[in-house]
Design a binder for these strands. Structure first.
Length: 221
DNA sequence: GACCAGGCACATC
DNA sequence: GATGTGCATGGT
């Protein structure tokens, strides 16, 4: 039912911002680490943490698996929440080595719903992080919801007041074709408009969605 | 100095 | 099941 509206928003954002080339990260493992580090955190801070890991030569499953947690925490310090994120990375790696011998390729063979469930069972990986990993690291067709998604589409009247993660995700899965590249680009574009215009204090002037019906509403998610 | 950032787990009611 | 809180750095 919302297909037309969703596509109009996508087209406007794509016309305005162009292709986003997501996820920023050179390897599958870097994407996964970035997904955990960026939880509630500005990406520029994550880049510094990742640079530290790269510089030390630790940005591999084995490298991080062997690194002591307190040493890891110091390296990812710029990303904020460094103690808890060090533990979360460790949880992921412990699981990866316990269950799959440290081989990410083994995860690639799993179906989308199985992979998602298994990721969610890892402490520190919630719905958004799991879906980011599925979509951006493993090219599985799933739409990633985040705070920007809720805010942008809440303001444009497409999301009811209190909505849960899966409820919002359903809107996109129902209205759109399950296409990896399309989901990739759409989410990245939503982050762009969120960063530039659709903030808690909106900067509607110059927003590519400015002339669409919208109003400031309480955060729906 | 206040506000914000690509969440999540856990406690409490 | 809903709501509140801790986690923390760095840019605007």
């Amino acid at each position: 039912m919302n297909r037309e509206k969703l596509l109009e928003i996508y087209n406007r954002l794509y016309t305005y911002y162009g292709p986003q080339h997501w996820w920023p990260g050179e390897t599958r493992f870097e994407i996964i680490v970035g997904a955990i580090l960026t939880q509630n955190t500005n990406w520029t801070n994550v880049e510094k943490a990742i640079a530290n890991l790269k510089k030390g030569g630790y940005l591999t499953p084995a490298g991080l698996h062997e690194l002591p947690a307190d040493r890891l925490a110091q390296l990812i310090r710029p990303a904020g929440y460094f103690n808890i994120k060090a533990r979360r990375l460790k949880c992921f790696l412990d699981w990866l080595f316990d269950e799959y011998d440290g081989l990410l390729e083994s995860l690639n063979g799993l179906g989308l719903s199985t992979l998602r469930e298994k990721l969610l069972a890892v402490k520190g990986i919630g719905p958004e992080t799991a879906d980011s990993i599925c979509l951006y690291a493993f090219q599985k067709p799933i739409f990633v919801v985040d705070a920007y998604t809720a805010r942008v589409f809440g303001r444009h009247g497409m999301i009811e007041a209190p909505s849960g993660y899966e409820q919002i995700q359903e809107i996109f899965h129902e209205g759109l074709d399950k296409d990896v590249q399309f989901f990739n680009e759409f989410h990245a574009l939503i982050v762009q408009v969120g960063k530039n215009h659709c903030k808690p204090k909106p900067i509607c002037n110059g927003c590519p969605l400015e002339d669409l019906p919208h109003q400031i509403v309480s955060e729906p998610y």
